[in-house]
Write a protein that binds this DNA or RNA. Structure first.
Lengths: 196, 196
DNA sequence: ATAATTACATACGCGGCGTATGTTGAAGAG
DNA sequence: CTCTTCAACATACGCCGCGTATGTAATTAT
């Protein structure tokens, strides 16, 4: 075995990220004790501080991982659609649905921004914004979407989506609320489409 | 002086809310030490626990106060507009601008949701959502806005606004970004307007 | 082979939160 | 008017969690 060392290190990092992700996603960032969830991974806080600097550093790594997964899912969805507009709409709806998952909601839309500031602002994890922006750019090039600032549109849609998800998740009847939200969302997007 | 007692109590409550608001709005909820900011108000943590139960209780009171102020401002703005549609747009733009104020941004859009969950969900402080909903309801009745679920529209617009504010506040050039955001936002709203 | 660095674990102190326990002064009963 | 009671705070205590400083074993470099 030439380099089991690096593998062990990567494994340790992965274990810490997984443990943190689990804890952050369930009890939340503030209530997650580093002693507890590192012990759960068979490690100590020493390892965490060594690899990630501090608790926020680990959160950052967790967010980066989740963002990558979300971006991948979004890209697959838009690629599978019959045309660009439908792909775009499907992408937005999927974004809402992802935001319904408790782990994503808690880490990406709640604790993340609260602890690290606006997460989508950093260079490392703007994957979802970037994915939305690319779709919008293409739609504008195709003449399907009217004249609107690309990044502004991406941000606004992103905000509307995440808030819609919060609304749905907190409602008494998530199923019904989800239908209302998605319907309203489609109407909103339709308003951006060039009429033909 | 008939009842200086109740006045003293109300004053104490107001002092605590003011001190908490100041601390939460500047250093943030998590970093705000109850010992510190209560001492700054000439009180102790004992008074805080007596009146508000715990730290979250105080945050709740602070949020309620700010929400009332924001609602008042929104209502005045929409009332001063020449027609309902312009009033609605002005209301939305004002909402973005309010969300730019550091105190509002920090307390209402960051720490509030992170600590208490979706703030707009509670009965006590959905003032801004309610204000938006009323405007939308009237526009629909006037035939100016198309068929869209009122609450869904209010939520989506609310989400887009607050996210836009975050984007602006964090950008390198807030002035320029603000122009882009507001312009994009107007375009988005225009898509909801019935064409005539 | 020894030195130096990496990858963790252990130990310590500090600050903050929540609670349990005073203490004071005002309102109500007789 | 006095005594009781209770509200409105202040004080005191213990626990937990974070960050850092330090220790240690294993790997790499020379």
């Amino acid at each position: 075995m030439r380099k089991p060392r690096e593998e062990m290190i990567a494994e340790t990092r992965a274990k810490l990220i997984a443990a943190g992700r689990q804890a952050f996603g369930t009890v939340g960032y503030a209530a997650a004790s580093m002693d507890d969830f590192t012990a759960g991974a068979g490690l100590t806080r020493g390892a965490l501080y060594h690899h990630f600097g501090d608790k926020k550093g680990l959160l950052q790594a967790v967010i980066q991982q989740i963002d990558a997964e979300m971006t991948l899912r979004l890209n697959r969805i838009s690629a599978a659609a019959p045309d660009r507009w439908q792909g775009f709409v499907a992408e937005c709806v999927a974004y809402i649905e992802m935001a319904l998952e408790p782990e994503i909601q808690r880490i990406m839309f709640r604790d993340g921004p609260a602890v690290l500031g606006d997460v989508s602002q950093w260079p490392t994890n703007n994957g979802c914004i970037a994915a939305l922006s690319r779709s919008i750019e293409q739609l504008k090039a195709d003449g399907v979407m009217g004249d609107i600032d690309t990044e502004a549109a991406a941000r606004l849609i992103n905000g509307a989506s995440s808030h819609a998800a919060l609304w749905i998740a907190k409602s008494d009847d998530p199923e019904e609320t989800s239908r209302r939200a998605v319907k309203g969302f489609r109407t909103l997007l339709e308003g951006l489409r060039v009429k033909g």
